[in-house]
Design a protein around this nucleic acid. Structure first.
Lengths: 202, 202, 202, 202
DNA sequence: AATGAATGAGAGTTCATTCAT
DNA sequence: TATGAATGAACTCTCATTCAT
């Protein structure tokens, strides 16, 4: 039951934010009554924090499953870009929660030790892959791994996060599987071309 | 007074979204009382729509001011990337409004003819610049202008939109002017390197 | 214009009562703006009083037009009953205004000299007709003219005033002209039979 | 508590109508806070419907308690007229609710199955009593029972419903117990005389 | 673990009315 | 005579939360 409440909370908070979400709606989705949420999580805010931590825990688990050390740097980097894209494609709730949390100024993420420690493994992975690629004479040097992570994630994140307005202003269906796949190729190509030294790897 | 209300609404809706924003707070910021909002805009929703259209009208005006036709393709493209970045840096309200609108599924943007017709000029500019660059043998061919716009905008948008959580998980200050300038250089470099054919333009 | 406002006010107050009526709606019906109502009538309440007095003035004028002195008592009485019925049939606004005024405890009617003096002519007419009929041996004696007026008016008033609920609970259309005419015959017959001494007049 | 709210609602809606009634006032009369009304009845409108149905249920119950089958037709009819009068005398809330409901066009009564089925027993009682009286040669024939019900009820209803304006225009106290009793006698006499064939029953 | 009853705080909206022109 | 701008006062309704069971 606790798990069901948490899952319902993730959806509801992702869709409507902390204040916009309705305790009643979460209870209904979870198939229980409101008071049980208080029994388990103390308050709406407590439930929100738990939901937020649970999505960060999930992405951390997935990232730690990545085994790219054995791959050549270019393949490893392409896999990383693809993973970032695919994870966001598969987890719209993660995007919704982050957007609302950022709108609030991210106080809960700041306050949560568990969350703060989440993304480091991915940046480490990027840093080491970059180093290997530079050492091989394959990648441009001087690329900041954090900046690279942000730009790679941003290309995918913005596509999914702002899909509805983009569809409206460009009069394009960006939800069709073909459109998503096409954009994924574009992102991987742009990122790889942006990293590779000329004359190499193509 | 009407203008003051609209400006206050832009801030408040950007910060808290349609439901989260308080009519009272908007009135206070505008220096009038709540009822005047209803007098001018009919409802909270009507005011929200007006605020949304006003920010789109603003960005359209700025984009139409861009005169890149006379520049060489590479310079034009670099200017475009820079403009996208700088506009978002200067207009956090635009980001806030868009995020909340997307969280709702973008019904107001869909419904607004004025907004739907907004972004085309920029994509046309990208498309013609790309064509010129490809004709010069400078840019890779086969790049979709809409995808390119989304990826360029996304790199900047995500940085500003998710700055707070990124600061928390990477334990970095991304708000310092140096950090912003550094990331801007990264984005321009990555985008240009991603577009140029090798051996050209560098 | 003043007349148009008054007519609009009669409809609106009849339909919704003093508090339920909207100043804005009255102005729209009259084809002017709200502020003009204040210019002419000072306040919503002042307009209400004017509307109330105008309908009472109208019914008084109509009643005073009745010339029944020359008719035989039975004919005169039948004409009176018919007139009461027909007036209410033709003036639903009168009914609406009276209902709402009574719901308030009739403070405006009490306060208005003009209104207080309205109905006397009709009761005088009833009283004299009754007297003549009793003198002729035609009518029962001992009938109170005020009570008679109330019962005669009530039979018609209730029919028109409560028509909608009566239609619902009796599943009958009471608005068709046949239904109204049938009920009118019933009322006249019942009243006349109730007044006549037996063996007389039939 | 639910019952207390319903009773308070009956008074308040009867006195001021659906829109005129104040939720706050109902709550105060019931001795609870506003929100509890919403908890039990969902909305002001829902509470209004419940109040309306409860008064109809009450009058139905009272009517069904009438046992007139064993009385001679004239006595039965006189009892019926008296009952109608006395019920209205004792239940001013019923009158207030009906007046306001009719002013709205009776949408709630129309929509409520429970209410629509209410009044039939009384009309059946009138119809059978009329038949018995006609068969005995006592009553006039050709009297429509529904019309008879409306006229009988109307004589009483109008007296109570419009008492305040009648008092004002006739400068009479119609609220004194003597006045009410006198009018009651008048109504019973007029109705019975209106029904009886001449030479019978007197 | 689960639920009906109850409440304080606050939100959006409506409306009569006034003022300046 | 006519109108745009502005406001105080209320009103309905929603919501997170608590308590007793």
């Amino acid at each position: 039951m606790r798990g069901a409440i948490l899952a319902a909370a993730r959806s509801e908070f992702a869709a409507r934010g902390l204040k916009g979400a309705r305790v009643q709606a979460i209870a209904e989705r979870a198939g229980c009554n409101k008071q049980l949420l208080y029994y388990y999580f103390g308050s709406k805010d407590g439930l929100y924090r738990a939901a937020l931590e649970s999505v960060y825990a999930d992405i951390r688990a997935q990232e730690q499953g990545l085994e790219l050390g054995g791959l050549p740097p270019a393949d490893a980097m392409a896999a990383l870009v693809g993973f970032s894209f695919d994870y966001l494609a598969a987890h719209p709730e993660f995007i919704g929660l982050l957007n609302h949390e950022n709108a609030l100024g991210a106080p809960h993420v700041r306050a949560s030790r568990a969350v703060r420690e989440t993304n480091s493994p991915l940046v480490d992975l990027i840093a080491s892959t970059l180093r290997r690629g530079v050492a091989d004479g394959l990648f441009r040097s001087g690329v900041d791994p954090v900046a690279l992570y942000i730009s790679i994630a941003g290309m995918a994140y913005f596509f999914f996060s702002n899909r509805r307005t983009l569809e409206a202003v460009f009069a394009r269906d960006l939800s069709a599987s073909g459109a998503v796949a096409g954009y994924r190729r574009h992102v991987v190509a742009l990122a790889m071309a942006g990293l590779l030294r000329c004359g190499k790897g193509r």
